[in-house]
Nucleic acid binder design. Structure first.
Lengths: 336, 336
DNA sequence: CTGAAAGCGCTTACAG
DNA sequence: CTGAAAGCGCTTACAG
């Protein structure tokens, strides 16, 4: 590996001068030229580790997701990675597999790698390690849900509003018996999405508890949830609150030989590959994946550069209701 | 951050002694005790960057996948990440989005981060940067396909045999008109999987070109491929050569109101979440994901530790044909 | 077994 | 503007 020392020798200047040149300081024209020539000739590329030793920056960001096979998380990670790479930061990835001990261990691990920042997905409960990370000067961005009792930068979407809107639209189309496959309401996302649904329903006077079934965000849960809801009398529309549950729900509907939207209307959450293969294409709540990745990157790099001193930024992005053909218009008794 | 210097002072020994202690050298009982006490008291954790400066090791591995939303790749990455983390290596992740320029740029980027090794998925064509990486002492493991003209450690599965076996089994069950949705045969995986199919068919005297349709590994391709194949007369079974195409194919079959396996038998490739939600559960070629991740980790760490000196290891793992209910037995004219 | 010192590649006050 | 030197946190031959 070519070092600054060799460049200095080749150019006939001191290593300090080469270092200054590399860091954009102004120096004598002639020296700049000689140094650049030496760099080109030797193919000098710099040693980011040595740089980090002095500046105490590793130029890397740790990212901790629950599961690497969750397409929502990896889509955001993909966007984030590209943002970071453009800014010369690398992304160290870990998963924690729904395991709190593992979550803690991986956070410790990331700390030991001296990452400059950590992006953590779906972490809701404070852990002592978080304070240790902050004390060590590591910036933290929470994604998709805030961390209770730990103020930090946060990027999430307005889940409540998303659900609220879904009901609004379905209602406008004449639906009143709308079933929902909700997620764990002890967790942030599950609670927000269900509350938005429930409040919107109540406002219209069409809420009823037996329109709600619970799931755990897997396709099996969606499958069973849809089966259960479709057993009930008169349900005309179904709202499934995440991607995998939606896929399961659609499968169940097809197996029951029901047609979408003729027999049952459906609105899903998240717009990924498989949302489009289903015929008709599904009406879904679309999250701004690309934008989330970039916002996360921006927030964390800004913090590292000291731009966000002494304040925390919480970004709540709007979702987009992508309206397609999986919902049918219903004639009401008097309306229309 | 607590440094070795502070520990040395606290323990009343020199920094060299502390360093030796940390690296497992034997020293006077009493000193070991004092140092350990100092470490505990101060909460010393070590600085991996400083260590790397001397040893020229970054303790990180770069991983380059085509797309972060490809569940096959991310499943392996997940397994690999856990292996690496156990061995105190971090995983720096990048994607290249089917873009050769980007692939090259990311490899350069990983080089600039001084990774100790690089794991690259689905890279088939040699690039000059590869030699540069090797010359820089970076070990490379190719995953899922070999790199033409560049010898390096490789981890892949026996795709040819997998396909061969699928035909064998289908044939045993009485199927003779077996359609295949193949992938790009200019690429390694596509060629292997189709060749295994074709050879097995030919051996049984049941091959015909019009049983083959091409796809690009997306669900749309599977969807269209299945539609096309099912238009043909007499096809009783369908073999789809990757996960996403299988999902598309199943969707097409359902939409055509065909039943699996009564109307059409199907064998897919890859066993992930959605392979199980479909009823009946799909018969699929299952790749040893977990094992692949571990093999990759083992190979690369062994190389780094100098265990694989002057030779390249190519691991070809067997797949498993997971036999379930999406294939029906057919009575042949005379047989049975 | 252990201390003092040189060194890993780079940055940056200090002088000039 | 630039050189010499100290320093980032750690490792490791060299002496003893």
């Amino acid at each position: 590996m070519v070092t600054i020392k060799e460049v200095a020798k080749e150019a006939g200047v001191s290593i300090g001068t080469v270092s200054r040149y590399l860091n954009g300081y102004q120096l004598k024209q002639n020296n700049m030229k000689k140094i650049q020539q030496a760099i080109d000739k030797l193919g000098y590329e710099g040693n980011i580790i040595a740089k980090g030793l002095k500046s105490n920056r590793s130029m890397s960001i740790g990212v901790l997701v629950n599961s690497l096979t969750d397409v929502f998380a990896t889509s955001i990670v993909s966007s984030l990675e590209n943002y970071l790479e453009e800014n010369n930061y690398s992304l160290i990835l870990c998963d924690y597999q729904n395991d709190n001990q593992r979550l803690e261990r991986k956070l410790e691990f990331l700390k030991s790698r001296l990452v400059d920042g950590i992006v953590v997905f779906h972490m809701e409960n404070n852990l002592p390690i978080l304070k240790k990370l902050r004390d060590a000067g590591i910036f933290i961005v929470a994604v998709d849900s805030p961390i209770k009792g730990f103020k930090t930068d946060t990027v999430l979407v307005d889940n409540y509003q998303a659900s609220y809107q879904v009901v609004d639209q379905l209602y406008k189309m004449g639906h009143e018996k709308i079933g929902v496959i909700a997620g764990d309401t002890n967790r942030y996302i599950g609670a927000e999405r269900l509350n938005g649904f429930a409040d919107s329903m109540k406002e219209k006077g069409i809420y009823s508890e037996d329109l709600v079934v619970m799931g755990d965000y897997t396709k099996e849960a969606g499958y069973k949830g849809a089966q259960e809801l479709l057993k009930k009398e008169g349900i005309t529309a179904l709202y499934s609150t995440n991607y995998y549950m939606t896929l399961g729900a659609v499968q169940a509907i097809f197996e029951m030989k029901k047609k979408i939207p003729e027999d049952i209307s459906i609105v899903g959450f998240d717009h990924f590959e498989l949302s489009d293969i289903i015929q008709p294409k599904l009406t879904v709540v679309e999250q701004p994946i690309q934008q989330m990745g970039e916002m996360i990157g921006e927030l964390i790099l800004d913090s590292i550069k000291g731009k966000n001193k002494d304040r925390h930024t919480s970004v709540e992005l709007a979702t987009n209701l992508l309206w397609r053909d999986s919902v049918k218009k219903i004639k009401k008794g008097l309306a229309n």
